[in-house]
Structure formats: C-alpha cells, structure tokens
Simulated assay, not measured.
Amino acid sequence: MIPAANLPDILPLFPLSGAVVLPRARLPLNIFEPRYLAMFEDVLKTRERLIGMIQPVDKEAEGALHGVGCAGRVTSFTETDDGRYMISLTGVSRFRFLNKVEGFVPYLQANIDWQEFTRDLGGAEHDDGFDRDGFLVLLERFFAVEELDTDWDNLKKAETEMLVNSLSMLAPFSPEDKQALLEAKTLSARRQTLLTLMEFALRRGDKGGMMQ
C-alpha cells in the first residue's frame, strides 16, 4: 500500500479507450509507441512507479479526457525482442483530472487530485449485500451469451472486491459503461452497476434470439 503522503500531484497519463484499472486489481498493458516507451522508462526512475490510466471522452473530441482516472503501480514488466514492454499495473487509487501540464516530455502529464478517493487506499473493500451464488449464476449466463471462457474454479474462490473489480475491467463493456464502473462510489454500487450491465446484455441476447 502506498501512503497518501507519497501520492504525487502531477501524474503521467496513459489515455486509452476501453481500458480502466481499479484499486488492487491488475491490468496488463502492451507498451510500444515511442512516447509511451519514454513515459514507461521515466516512470521506472520514480519511487512509486505510477501511471495514470484515463479514458478519452470520445474519438471525435480530440484531447478531451474523462474527469476521473485511476493510478496503477508498475508491479512487473518484460521487454520483448522487438523493444516493446509487456507490463502489469496494480491499481492504487482513483483521481480527479484537473488540467494538463505543459512540459518537455513527449507524453501527457496532468495535475490531479486524490481527495475524493481516499477510501481506495484503505485496503480491500467489502460488500455486505453481495449474493455470490446469484451473481455467479447470472455471470455464467452472461459469459455464455458473450462466448467468453474463464477459469470458473478460481473465479468462484476470488475475494468479492477482486471478483467485482476484475470483471468491471475485463468484461466486454463499452468505454462509457467502463467509465461508469470506474466512477462508482463504493464496491456495492459497482457490483449493482455490473449486474445491471449484464442483465441488459442478457435481455439484448433474448431479443436477438441468442438465449434459449
């Protein structure tokens, strides 16, 4: 865990549509663009090794970013023969994007504010209203409709926060839906949003003749 006092006011940002990271969950990334290779090499020189993941608002609004992102700490990386990096980010805390910082680096940096999301640093969050059995039944139907495979044994054993956050990051939802999951105030609210999105996908499947 990174102490709040060690969180920087300026963060390098990696804008990527459809990619979010949540506290204590892991996000794999393939780094290959020269500006992000430079960013990664600079990040490795810092104490906390933080990268801010943030989504663009849309493809038409060039340079416009969502107001909330999440910082991840580089916890592992491998360099490939062709000069790319395969890295793993472990989510630390969400942040509020304030404004871009002009500088002499080829990648984006921004002033950010952590104050709204101090709970993210408080250890694993619990969801007392979580109905695991019912959730897994719905999840299995959702995976069948989306033709997704998973390791069900490990999935069933996962802690609630890791289960909900990992699914929020990796399930095939739209960038807008992933932003809603990222910005959910509590784990319970995120779980409820996740259920709503899966139920909507199942209803859409029924109308399309995909569910029997």
Rank of each mutant, 00 (worst) to 15 (best):
Arg96Lys: 09
Glu140Arg: 14
Met169Trp: 03
Glu60Asp: 15
Leu138Pro: 02
Thr186Asp: 10
Gly123Asn: 09
Arg94Met: 07
Asp177Glu: 15
Asp127His: 13
Ser17Pro: 10
Phe14Asn: 00
Val105Lys: 14
Gly123His: 02
Arg94Gln: 08
Phe143Gly: 01
Thr90Arg: 14
Arg35Trp: 07
Arg191His: 12
Gln109Ser: 13
Val92Leu: 10
Ser188Arg: 13
Arg141Asn: 12
Thr186His: 07
Ala201Ser: 14
Met1Thr: 07
Leu7Cys: 08
Gly69His: 05
Gly134Val: 06
Leu167Glu: 04
Ala144Thr: 12
Phe142Trp: 08
Met1Glu: 11
Asp151Gly: 03
Lys207Asp: 12
Pro106Glu: 08
Gly83Trp: 10
Gly67His: 11
Val145Phe: 01
Phe117Cys: 00
Ala201Trp: 05
Leu182Lys: 04
Ala4Phe: 14
Met198Leu: 09
Ser174His: 08
Ala184Arg: 09
Leu44Pro: 06
Pro23Thr: 04
Asp82Lys: 07
Arg49Ala: 05
Lys156Gly: 10
Lys207Val: 14
Asp149Cys: 01
Lys185Asp: 14
Leu136Glu: 13
Leu197Glu: 11
Asp206Thr: 14
Glu116Asn: 12
Asp120Phe: 03
Val105Glu: 13
Glu183Tyr: 00
Val145Arg: 11
Thr78His: 11
Gly209Asn: 03
Ile112Ser: 02
Ala144Met: 09
Gly18Met: 01
Glu125Met: 10
Tyr36Glu: 07
Arg141Phe: 00
Arg35Val: 02
Glu41Gln: 15
Met211Tyr: 00
Leu139Asn: 04
Phe130Asn: 10
Thr150Glu: 11
Leu182Ile: 11
Ala25Glu: 01
Leu155Pro: 02
Ser76Cys: 00
Ala201Glu: 14
Leu121Gly: 01
Phe95Val: 04
Gly18Asp: 03
Arg73Phe: 02
Lys59Ala: 15
Leu44Phe: 08
Leu27Val: 06
Pro23Met: 07
Glu102Trp: 03
Lys178Phe: 11
Gly72Ser: 04
Leu138Trp: 02
Pro3Tyr: 02
Leu202Ile: 14
Ser166Ile: 01
Gly83Ala: 04
Thr186Ile: 09
